[in-house]
Design a protein around this nucleic acid. Structure first.
Lengths: 354, 354
DNA sequence: GCAGGTGGTCGAATCGATTCGATTCGAATC
DNA sequence: GATTCGAATCGAATCGATTCGACCACCTGC
């Protein structure tokens, strides 16, 4: 015999039928009284509400409602990282913010899901739609399941998949423009500090094999963009978009005798770390080392530098994803969207040393 | 006539019954084949899976499953602020992190809800349990509804409510200890920079009326702790836990002729802002001004200072909340928990000027 | 006085799965 | 050869609400 968690096993929780019975109306009328959809006389409604009060009934059960209606009011957001890592990245927060801007006003709540690798987790939640944020190809199986269920899917910065609305950023083009900026300043020895390429966030050099095996769409695109300008460019893969990771990679890169004169960091946080590393090593930015970031995050504590970076409209990306969700849910077709980054030249890039 | 969002109106989405029929078994057996709960021969299971494949069936519908099982696998997290604000506070992230540590491994996902003031929003979601993070008393009505539904509730740093597991912090005691530290250093002119006291996040002076009308439990407790040492202490209420807010409050406080020699900031972010403001005004920290923070957040860009602050175990708080949820869900009683902060003396507090 | 609304209410079907108790069938035991 | 046991399977009830079509009573306008 299973008993309720609260322990009041004697009285089963009341349901709509019980309330209706006490109020002397049918269940259908009671339902109307709660949902407000349909004509119910004021007297009847009052009687139903009073009965609910008497029975300590808290309103229609969301589970039953969502089964019947076929809608749960929940939008899943799948993030690749652990939550703690994801929340440390200002871009993720900005995108979440943009998504809630749109979905929140439609009464939809966000369900946080992490891409743990097992397909089980993500497809058992009662969701009306899903947003994939920078997810790896590991999720393919889950995507299939979601599609089978007819759940609209929106992917922000992911490899294109059929029946998935794509919200894209010009990662490759933007990085190319950034790289051209460095080339125009005379730099030839340039290195990349890349975002993780695999789900395990393995540190290490950027090798053709690792790039080929990469499951990280964004990072790969940005590497390609850098290669468009510096075909033989190398560098290091960091274990995450964190200042500390930038420091680690920066120290490793700059300790070499043949150190680069410019670094293309794939995020502003990484860029800040590289700048710190440079300063620890006695290198001046931008005189001895130019550093390019990506994101346009407002990072504190970088003064007196102002980061040269590729500003991306992260909140807008989130909003677009939210709108796409809303459209899909309304049965309208949702269009892909592509956003552009803007090269903002700050004080962390300069002419290559002689 | 309503058609499916995907547009394939002709073929209705298959359900377990259809799969069972095609496989030539009963629905009950098909259910067993998917859930794995109960004995099913390998041959039968294979047949069911094949039928599912044929019909493009993506597995049992989570909505129906959750109705029948009475569990949705979702834990609601109610945050007072807008998400973008909440995520800017490292303590909230740390707590979320702690919660997921515990709930994630139990297969529960987090549903982000914001306390928008309307009771409707929070009680219509299909949740198994709820964590309230620093929520105001506005939520009372929702709490009643949740309780009626038998949904376990855990509140982190909130006024105590019956049938709600409380995870507390020694806000008052800790602040008192911090204030004593300042008193011991000879400070007498001390001011508070407080976290918001109302849901609207109104800036302004700390007045007895506002404190009395406060809906913010944590902020109020910390004010009381400061008053335990400096009975007539005043100060300003900031509009959020942000560095910029600390700067604004700091400038306002320190511009006065009779400026304080020490500031008790209710968060590290606020403290950093106050320090910045002081430096802009040409005041040296800690020689001209001592600043005490709260949280123990690792804030970047404060060098060379090391903040004197009250370190709280935020991740542990989250973990405790997660464990309480798990216990409640398992039908076991969950105990309240109380955590303690530790005064960490850094370099931002010193003896009062002569 | 009658056709034509219309506001209010109800019955019954439905959403899609889970689960309990019962049943069947084959194999093992004495 | 009868009996017992266990694995495999099935039927039917159930979770709790929503919704559609039907129905009734009452009112309006002609």
């Amino acid at each position: 015999m299973r008993h309720e968690a609260t322990g009041d096993r004697g009285t089963p929780r009341p349901n709509l039928a019980a309330v209706a019975a006490l109020a002397g109306v049918s269940a259908s009328t009671a339902s109307l009284a709660f949902s407000g959809a349909g004509p119910v006389s004021d007297a009847t409604k009052a009687r139903v509400l009073a009965a609910a009060e008497t029975l300590n009934y808290g309103g229609p059960d969301p589970r039953a409602r969502s089964l019947r209606r076929g809608r749960s009011g929940i939008v899943g957001v799948v993030i690749e990282d652990r939550l703690s890592d994801a929340f440390r990245d200002p871009m993720n927060i900005a995108m979440l913010d943009g998504i809630t801007d749109e979905t929140g006003s439609a009464g939809l709540a966000l369900l946080l899901l992490t891409d743990t690798g097992e397909a089980t987790d993500i497809s058992v939640a009662p969701m009306d739609a899903v947003v994939l944020i920078g997810c790896s190809t590991r999720l393919d199986q889950s995507v299939v399941t979601l599609r089978q269920r007819g759940i609209p899917i929106v992917a922000i910065e992911a490899a294109h998949m059929p029946d998935v609305v794509a919200i894209d950023l010009d990662n490759r083009d933007a990085t190319r423009r950034g790289a051209e900026h460095l080339r125009d300043l005379g730099h030839t020895r340039v290195a990349i500090v890349s975002l993780p390429l695999d789900p395990e966030h393995t540190r290490g050099p950027i090798t053709p094999e690792r790039v080929a095996a990469s499951s990280a769409f964004t990072a790969t695109e940005r590497i390609l963009g850098a290669r468009d300008v510096f075909p033989h460019i190398g560098g290091l893969v960091a274990a995450g978009s964190l200042i500390e990771e930038g420091e680690i990679a920066g120290l490793a890169l700059l300790a070499e005798a043949d150190r680069p004169t410019a670094v293309i960091a794939q995020s502003d946080l990484l860029a800040v770390g590289v700048i710190r590393a440079a300063e620890w090593l006695g290198l001046r930015v931008p005189d001895d080392l130019s550093v390019l970031g990506f994101d346009g995050a407002r990072i504190d504590g970088l003064a007196p530098h102002e980061l040269t970076t590729l500003r991306q409209p992260a909140v807008e990306k989130g909003r677009a994803a939210g709108r796409a969700i809303l459209a899909s849910l309304a049965g309208e077709p949702a269009r892909d969207a592509r956003f552009e980054s803007e090269l903002h030249v700050g004080t962390t890039t300069g002419r290559a040393p002689q």
